[in-house]
Simulated assay, not measured.
Amino acid sequence: MKKILAALVAFAALTAAAPALGADLGARPYYKQPPVYAPAIVYNWTGFYIGGHLGGAFTGSHDFNGAVLSDSSARLLGGVQAGLDWQFATNWVLGTEGQYSWLGKNNLTATFPGGYVYTNDQRGLGSVTARIGYTWGPGLLYVKGGYAYSDNSERLTLAGAPIPFLLDGSHTHGYTVGAGVEYMFAPNWAVKGEYMYYDFGSTRFISPAALVPFGSFHNDDHTLKLGVNYRFNFASPVVARY
């Protein structure tokens, strides 16, 4: 009986000491899940692109020393472009671009005394330019300039019959300058707005002799374009590491 009582007393003592022993072991460790960070997109302008554009072209003022010229100066245009950019610093982009725009019907016509009629149908404008731009992430503001080409179809008639003629210089080749803004709105895709001025110099008749005294006329164009580019260089999202 004494042995049973002793065992019961010992068991009770152990039961009373158990909570204190558990407290000495410390709290269960708590593991917190690390935070999830959204991917950080890095915009990269370096690479090749192709695209298309629509807009309008406006011919500058022309005259042959008082001879009246009639022309449909406002025309629709549409074309294609391709280029290569290099982002050589955090906010700076250097590039080159080739572009061609088909023009709506435009007959620049000059009627001279004696029945001579000169007509120039300008069918297209092309350019090869260099450009430099300032970028802030998805946006790019740029200026450009370089070689320009005008696709002209010219004729001279007398009393309705075509006759040969000679000009003192080609107004097919010239220069262009412009500026624009481009914006990446989705992976691989960008939209742009652009103004370009084309100058093809002045031209005068060398023959026939009857047109030589009328002097020269200037050849220039202003264009406004809206376009879209597919870019092969858009950077994949980069997840920041901590």
Rank of each mutant, 00 (worst) to 15 (best):
M1Q: 13
M1V: 10
L5Y: 15
A6Y: 13
V9A: 15
A12C: 11
T15Y: 10
T15C: 12
A17Y: 11
A18K: 13
L21N: 06
G22D: 12
G22R: 08
A23V: 07
L25R: 03
L25K: 03
A27N: 13
A27H: 08
P29V: 01
P29R: 02
Y31I: 01
Q33E: 15
Q33C: 07
P39W: 09
P39A: 15
V42W: 07
W45L: 07
T46C: 10
T46G: 06
T46R: 10
G47R: 02
F48I: 13
Y49H: 09
G52P: 01
L54T: 12
T59F: 10
G60A: 05
D63R: 05
F64N: 02
A67Q: 14
V68N: 14
S70N: 15
S70H: 15
S70E: 14
S72C: 07
S72H: 14
S73Q: 13
A74W: 15
R75I: 10
V80Y: 06
Q81C: 07
Q81P: 01
A82G: 15
G83E: 05
G83C: 07
G83M: 05
D85Y: 04
D85N: 14
W86H: 12
F88D: 11
A89K: 12
W92E: 08
W92L: 14
V93P: 02
G95R: 02
G95W: 02
Y100R: 04
K105H: 13
L108D: 04
T111Q: 07
P113S: 13
G115M: 10
Y116K: 03
V117D: 00
V117Q: 08
Y118I: 00
Y118N: 00
T119K: 05
T119C: 04
N120M: 08
N120A: 09
D121E: 14
Q122D: 03
T129I: 11
T129H: 03
R131Y: 10
G133F: 00
T135F: 00
T135M: 05
V143M: 09
Y147N: 05
N152I: 11
R155P: 03
T157N: 08
L158W: 08
L158E: 04
A159F: 14
A159P: 00
A161V: 13
F165N: 01
D168V: 07
S170L: 12
S170W: 10
T172E: 15
H173L: 13
T176R: 02
A179T: 11
V181Q: 03
E182T: 02
E182K: 08
M184P: 02
F185G: 06
P187L: 11
K192N: 10
E194M: 05
Y197D: 00
Y197E: 04
F200N: 02
F200Y: 12
G201C: 09
F205I: 04
F205R: 01
P208N: 08
A209G: 10
A209S: 12
V212Y: 04
P213E: 01
F217E: 02
T223R: 04
L224K: 00
L226A: 10
V228K: 01
R231S: 05
A235R: 06
P237M: 09
P237K: 07
V239R: 06
Y242Q: 08
